[in-house]
């Protein structure tokens, strides 16, 4: 269920667009709803966003599955978004992702047992010059190596 508070926030974004174009607020709406739900979306929530914005449900689903920043499974407290696009890949992102998977005993897309982290592969984050790189929260971590990763993980609480 979307809370009234969240609906209010969504409606604030709706006012930013011309009358009748409320569907333009769909991305903000999904973000608000996802945050409220602990970082991921469910079918019901997508349905509710669709109803609230008077959109066909499938159209909301299209947006929600197109962008990597929406999650469709429960996530950990921290999400490690690992870039696996060309520059990062050439600089060894695949190996680093495997390293992460082994160390945390998770597969990409899953949550670690303690619920602390989940790993996600994402497309180019625009920091190619610093590849291989990942994003955790608002922070970019560049020129990654296994030991750098160890360090980062140790500091996650």
């Amino acid at each position: 269920m979307i809370s009234d508070q969240a609906k209010k926030e969504i409606d604030f974004w709706v006012t930013k667009y011309p009358e009748g174009r409320q569907s333009s607020a769909v991305m903000q709406a999904l973000t608000i709803v996802q945050n409220e739900n602990g970082g991921s979306l469910t079918g019901e929530l997508i349905q509710e966003v669709a109803d609230h914005l008077q959109m066909p449900t499938i159209s909301v689903q299209e947006v929600a599955t197109f962008y990597e920043n929406y999650n469709h499974k429960p996530v950990g407290k921290h999400i490690i978004r690992f870039c696996h696009n060309i520059s990062c890949m050439l600089n060894g992102s695949d190996e680093l992702i495997s390293y992460l998977e082994e160390k945390l005993e998770v597969k990409t897309g899953e949550v670690s047992k303690d619920g602390l982290v989940s790993v996600k592969k994402v497309e180019c984050l625009g920091a190619c010059v610093g590849g291989p790189m990942c994003q955790i929260g608002d922070q970019y971590h560049e020129h990654l190596t296994p030991s750098k990763l160890d360090n980062i993980l140790d500091n996650l609480k």
Partner: peptide, 9 residues
Amino acid sequence: IVEMGGTGR
């Protein structure tokens, strides 16, 4: 009817 759509990327 908007029932079919393209999901994913």
